[in-house]
Design a protein around this nucleic acid. Sequence first.
DNA 1: TATCAACTGAGACTGAGTATCGTCAAGGTG
DNA 2: CACCTTGACGATACTCAGTCTCAGTTGATA
Lengths: 146, 146
Amino acid sequence: MTDTSAIVTALDLAGYRLTEPRRVVAELIANRDGHFSAADLVADARQGRLDVGRATIFRTLELFTELHAVERVDLPSGDHAYVECEPVHHHHVICSQCARTTEVEACGMPAVARDVARRTGFRIQSHRLELFGICPDCQDANGRRA
Amino acid sequence: MTDTSAIVTALDLAGYRLTEPRRVVAELIANRDGHFSAADLVADARQGRLDVGRATIFRTLELFTELHAVERVDLPSGDHAYVECEPVHHHHVICSQCARTTEVEACGMPAVARDVARRTGFRIQSHRLELFGICPDCQDANGRRA
DNA sequence: TATCAACTGAGACTGAGTATCGTCAAGGTG
DNA sequence: CACCTTGACGATACTCAGTCTCAGTTGATA
């Protein structure tokens, strides 16, 4: 749960209008913990009696993605999800139990990419790295239950 | 273009029936170069007048994925695709120009995962790494055109 | 407060993937 | 070889994420 001001500021800076639906979507995202899908936000909006159309939620997520305020991730199941995040290059560590995500830098990656480039002859332009595991909280909870 | 025998053998070993449609799908995959979607195979089958139902193609791809004869990858566009591959842990380098893919080991990855685990406290269980770039052939072709 | 382009919501549409179900055929058995 | 069981098949209907269209609305700016 982060506050919405970062997203709102980013919108403003990029020259986009600050509309009510966008504010609502930013808030829905801020109230989320871990990754979420467009469908989750649609459900949240409906439950909170906040009037935001389905199409608008998709459009807004696309816009926020463009602003790097959220990022798309692909879960091992093959489903798409979004996570709120900082606008710098990083990767996500995703808890497969509670869905919470953490951002990391994965400093070793440039070396790995260089190594791959050398061995394959590819000119590497980008990469996608997602790590899945169990977060400290869930490890604790599991340990206590056992 | 690989031969289909590896897939056929894998099916047999795992105790699955060797049916005509499965043989056809294996062949369609072997005739492909680079990544492909289920829809591509459906189109290929139709074009080659090979009678394989759409549902069967999806089912067969799921089965082959389970046997690690193919693997799902997520393109930067967000689309899903499949690539034929060897049944050992590895990663894919995908040419964003011609879609051809190469398998690499990315030896540095365990170290990166360990580092992330240490810094976040997560117990890392799995990861997904995909690299995107330009393959040597396309680099050549681009260079010659310029 | 008037203007106008950017934005919105409703709803139709598309296309990937899944579920159902009656039929068929692979492969083991006698 | 003929039979039988059961896994696999194709057709088709369905679901659901995501996109498109368009008439109506709203936020920034003068």
